[in-house]
């Protein structure tokens, strides 16, 4: 018995030997990650590498086939209900009811997250959907749906944001909005994992980067394969290939 665990700071995300399989199809293989609270991490990799699966697993939506996953010290399997109180996952597309208006969708989210009515108004204003809040979501463009998802993240007040392709479908002002939200998250000491193909943009706002390939995680910045110059980075965890 050691007293060390009680004195060790709790990781925002801790993955130990995580695997996820569907039959013989291995999606995640022996993934290890320790992410300190308040850090922003870029998760990058090609299509089908396992980014979304990893995010859903951290969000407690998927059960790992093997290994242990914890969010702020809470087990994603045993304490899934508590994990969801601290996590907000924004998917690549959708996640809203098309036959409800943007406002009605956010009203539901507001109730579930226990946010105030003022927070809802602030979130709508922040993402620039004030004028479109009364429209049915099925009439929204992809970019507007993405803004609505960002409003939900803003509204959630969650300590851990999992953003799956936050820049996708957005115009330049939308992308700037994502940048602002990421900077705000950093100021508020929120932990953020950004899965993105917009590497230069996302990496510029990240404290570290992890690369995922065929379900395996590597500590590798996109600078290794991209022409842009990386800023100095702070180590935020350990990653095992």
């Amino acid at each position: 018995m050691s007293l060390e665990p009680t004195t060790k700071p709790v990781s925002a995300v801790s993955l130990q030997n995580i695997s996820k399989r569907y039959g013989d199809n291995v999606i995640l293989a022996d993934v290890n990650l320790a992410l300190s609270p308040g850090k922003t991490v870029l998760l990058w990799g090609s299509n089908g590498a396992g980014k979304t699966t990893l995010l859903k697993l951290i969000a407690s939506r998927l059960r790992p086939s093997a290994g242990q996953a914890q969010v702020f010290g809470l087990d994603v399997l045993q304490d899934a209900a508590f994990v969801r109180e601290h996590v907000c996952y924004a998917p690549v597309l959708g996640g809203f009811y098309g036959s409800l208006t943007g406002r009605e969708n956010l009203e539901l989210a507001r109730h579930f997250y226990g946010a105030t009515a003022d927070a809802l108004e602030a979130a709508l204003a922040r993402v620039g959907l004030n004028n479109a809040q009364g429209q049915l979501v099925r009439r929204y463009s992809s970019g507007m749906k993405k803004r609505l998802a960002l409003a939900k993240v803003h509204l959630s007040g969650a300590a851990l944001w999992l953003l799956d392709e936050p820049y996708a479908s957005l115009d330049e002002s939308g992308k700037a909005l994502v940048d602002d939200l990421l900077q705000e998250a950093k100021r508020e000491r929120r932990t953020v994992i950004v899965a993105s193909h917009d590497l230069a943009r996302a990496y510029a706002l990240s404290d570290a980067a992890v690369y995922i390939d065929q379900g395996r995680l590597y500590a590798r910045s996109p600078a290794a394969v991209s022409p842009f110059q990386p800023a100095p980075r702070e180590a935020v965890g350990n990653h095992a290939p």
């Binding site: 969000a59 407690s60 939506r61 209900a81 969801r84 109180e85 996590v87 996952y89 998917p91 597309l93 959708g94 996640g95 809203f96 009811y97 098309g98 036959s99 989210a109 579930f112 997250y113």
Partner: peptide, 18 residues
Amino acid sequence: QHELEDGAFEQLLLYPIG
């Protein structure tokens, strides 16, 4: 049917509700 459109049900299950 409405739940399955656009992944709304998955999001519903990710909210902090039982």
